[in-house]
Design a protein around this nucleic acid. Sequence first.
DNA 1: AAAAAATTGTAACAGATTGTACCAGCAAGC
DNA 2: GCTTGCTGGTACAATCTGTTACAATTTTTT
Lengths: 239, 239
Amino acid sequence: MESSPHILVVDDHRDIRDLLARYLAKHEFRVSTAEDAAAARRVIKDAAIDLVVLDIMMPGEDGLALCRHLRATGDLPVILLTAMGEETDRVVGLEIGADDYITKPFNPRELLARIKAVLRRAHSMPPRFEAVGEGRVRFGRWVLDLDRRELIDEDGVAIPLSTGEFRLLAIFLERPATVLSREQLLDLTRGRDAAPFDRSVDNQVSRLRRKIERDPKSPELIKTVWGAGYTFVGEVERS
Amino acid sequence: MESSPHILVVDDHRDIRDLLARYLAKHEFRVSTAEDAAAARRVIKDAAIDLVVLDIMMPGEDGLALCRHLRATGDLPVILLTAMGEETDRVVGLEIGADDYITKPFNPRELLARIKAVLRRAHSMPPRFEAVGEGRVRFGRWVLDLDRRELIDEDGVAIPLSTGEFRLLAIFLERPATVLSREQLLDLTRGRDAAPFDRSVDNQVSRLRRKIERDPKSPELIKTVWGAGYTFVGEVERS
DNA sequence: AAAAAATTGTAACAGATTGTACCAGCAAGC
DNA sequence: GCTTGCTGGTACAATCTGTTACAATTTTTT
């Protein structure tokens, strides 16, 4: 690793900020702290932050909202701190697309281990391409024509895609082998937030599967990750 | 475990100290007691304490202050004892970063379970599961395709796995011939902590066995290690 | 050895999550 | 206007997961 990673700790409790700042500094990290989402945004703008440790329960802007924002704008790794409650932690954390999460009360040593793991993962991320260009992308037995926005099968027959289907597929192809939550997909394809019982992503996935999967009942390309979202599986090759 | 862990019980009630000392000693722990924060500090200084059980309501220096001190100076695990219905204290306790808490009146057995859990967490954290690995893994008469997230039998027939089953199996295959406790498996597969009487891992193992074992009644691949957890037995070959 | 306690296997159930058919609203094109 | 294709909401069935309960098994105690 080039220089020591810069961690931003966002929590409204001074105790925790101080504790983590001291502990992480002792372990060769540079540390900044912020007591709310607004301050966090300022810090992220000014300093080169490598990873954010973020409490989801904060007054003012919610930690989840901030996490969602970070996900949407870039790929700054986030580790969520959640209170001891049961379901919300895991599900919400994963859905939002945090890289990891840890429940309070936590052992600082464990948090340290996870920070290292996430950084390791983040640094060795396979290169992603921007499908929003021109050219063609081959995957499975298909070729996606990015200019014409249509699918071409093995026999060279073109299958039209709707705007929504095309966007969704492009998003998946940009991030193969990555689990994307419904929140993320909605944000990336429509740029909007989810309504309480929003199933539009499921519907769009279902429609896309009907076009690209041999058997939509047991999909081979777009897999469901229960409780988390969807993931595109398989080779993706620019051509 | 190398030698029996040394627990320090800090409480101003003699009956509680004695009860816990007797109970924990019966379960292979070494136990020291202290009746206030000052005494506790002395003990911690002199003896190699592995974990502190700490009442937050004490005359003199507050238990919270001591907890905060312990957190700041090192990473000695702490389990807080709180009186029933002291919501504020509980919350603050968690924020301070105690490893766990338990409300009085409590069941000694439950405290024991939490002590074990905290110690296990503190001592050895196995490497975290990498969500999507690559390639295929052969074991027994099966091949697990890590990219496609599915199981393939000898005839090349794919057997679908649920997300939970896939994660569990992948965890086992990454650590063959290693005994994994239910705590570890729960953390590795769902990233969550165990509830007091959590049997979800047993159920998931049972469901997985039903799919991969010739005879689930006498499993050949995933063996039960009584009183400890489960272990995957057999050749695992990356391919 | 018998009894009690702890641990495990798993069926059954309930709640959560997902797949998708169907429908209505809407925009674009006629 | 009318038609057509796309999209999101709704509803219901299917699937997945955690909890509970109880029987079976193993260990410990009496």
